[in-house]
Design a protein around this nucleic acid. Sequence first.
DNA 1: AAATCAGTTGCAAACGATTTGCAATTAAAT
DNA 2: ATTTAATTGCAAATCGTTTGCAACTGATTT
Lengths: 153, 153
Amino acid sequence: MKKTCAHKHAEKKQELSSLTGRLRREAHKITSPRAAILEILRHHAHPLTNKEIFAELPKGECDLATIYRAMQLMEELGMVKRFDFGDGSARFKLVGEGDESHHHHLICTRCAEVVEIGECFPEEIERRIARANGFTGVTHRLEFFGLCPGCQK
Amino acid sequence: MKKTCAHKHAEKKQELSSLTGRLRREAHKITSPRAAILEILRHHAHPLTNKEIFAELPKGECDLATIYRAMQLMEELGMVKRFDFGDGSARFKLVGEGDESHHHHLICTRCAEVVEIGECFPEEIERRIARANGFTGVTHRLEFFGLCPGCQK
DNA sequence: AAATCAGTTGCAAACGATTTGCAATTAAAT
DNA sequence: ATTTAATTGCAAATCGTTTGCAACTGATTT
């Protein structure tokens, strides 16, 4: 199931200190559960579900509910980005300090492998659509689904 | 909340007979709950949640579970298309007999108004992405979100 | 029109993801 | 070391959706 797709990413793992700093900055505590969660997120390039995070955490390190609360908080602080692959559970990925990169994913419908798609097309079209319909603050959600090389029989 | 956005649709409401025919064709019964559900879908151009359908149904006409089952069946038969606007509940819309049109939506994040976007861009790009990553049977999900004219304060 | 049978339904219980109330803990400031 | 607001674990509660099952009903047959 789990597969590490070859990425040309610069793999710039964020310093833990930079992460905890962001929490501290907002008058939030750096608790052991949070540190553990950040440690896991730091080591994954692709979005993880709360359950997956929970599974990687040492035995009784932290409650599932705590993870849900942590992800919610960190999402508000802009530390993680939430993804919806349409399979019923949210996934989260760390967001770099200045890294506001907007990109999409190619997800294998069988093994759930995730490939990041660098580009983001709609950009210009999005503006046109917004204007044409009088909408403001328009954003979009775009994900691709298919069978990865390994899952094709 | 509910808003009827001016559409230039040809409003080709499908004949009930054509719909029930599709069910019958597959050895399925035209029950009163199903007829009622189809009647409601026939009158809505935009995807509805099962709860919304349930709400429009006369008092005790049909159980919520029955609607879930009906939508699941009709989705398999290709009679309805399922949409995921990311708000936690699925939405369904009737699909015309030959109508395989693939399109997207612009959804107001405040009042949930839905505007259909005729075009579908990624088409070509999708092929490129699939090839570039060795994926097959690639499809995509694209929805736009923003504030509709009426909800902008 | 009555009999027949597979497809359906209502209802309640089951589910999986996510949230929340609350008393007990704990990180961080004093 | 003290104080206090933030946080946690745990269990119960929500929500959308699914499912088991006995009773029911179209559609077909006789």
